[in-house]
Amino acid sequence: MNQTAEIVAPQQDQPLVQVSGLEVRFKSPDRTVHAVNGVDLTLKRGEILTILGESGSGKSVTLRTLMRLLPERRTQLKGQVSVDGRDVLAMPQRELRRFRGRTAAMIFQEPMLAFDPVFTIGQQIAETVCRHEGVSHKEGLARALELFELVRIPSARRRLANYPHELSGGMSQRAMIALALSCRPRLLLADEPTTALDATVQIQILLLLRELQRELDMSVIFVTHDMGVANEISDRIAVMYGGRIVETGKVGEIIAQPRHPYTLGLMNSRASGELKGQRLEAIPGSPPDLATLPSGCAFAPRCPYAIDTCHDSVPIAHTIEGQHWAACHRLEQTQP
């Protein structure tokens, strides 16, 4: 008993999440979708990382792999995923269920749909607490009440007895956060948690998440397609395209000095006040079909700087400065 505890005991300076060479394929009889194609990722304790990308870039799939939430029958996983010193991909089912919700918890894009409609919010939070801490339903409800106060839901006691359809979008996202935090996870995974919300509610939820992350000393991986959201919340950004990370670095570096042509394109297509009356710049073309990925750089067909090499070989990561790197053959073209 003692021995095992020693072996699994995570060291504090070791990163909380380490992903290397992750590949995810979805198999169906007629085609194979290459959703993630070699992702390396590390997340330090207490850090907030945003994975930025458009739909189909593999960001949500990467997030789900960290909890092994993808349907096992149709999914092929390769690579290493370790969270808090544990090998997620090798975990037996029993351990996996103890891990989910306790070590890592997730909040979802559509909070209204992420709750079971025929149970009250309180019941659903208490259920999780009972599951992981073996307490009674009543104690679970008491914890739910504390959590509701933590995420600042007004008249918390009454809200606990509500059904999901009786809450507004912002309120149910707060409830979802309360649910995710119910067993004090070390890692919070957020899958576009503000996308379905009004702009004013969005910023409240972001501020709340940032505050709770500091208070509870959690690590957070935040998935979004919204540059503004990424800028607001993260310490570090990883930009994904075609199932690969194409550029990563500290928020300031990515926002101020994007180097990958795709990141540049994203930056240029943002709307802001000064641009009033002008056409927004868009990235030409459309995202790649993940069933038939090009053999070279996935962005090459849309890239203004692409040369033959880009179509032939997948670029490796080039360090730009410190932790800032980009995977591109033509970095000299994007020098500021």
Partner: peptide, 24 residues
């Protein structure tokens, strides 16, 4: 439905998830 994935993400056993499905 999304909530089934959310139930699994909470760490519930498959039997417990099944109960949620039944009630729906």
């Amino acid at each position: 439905h999304d909530f089934v994935e959310a139930l699994r993400a909470k760490g519930l056993a498959e039997v417990r998830v099944f109960l949620h499905v039944v009630k729906n």
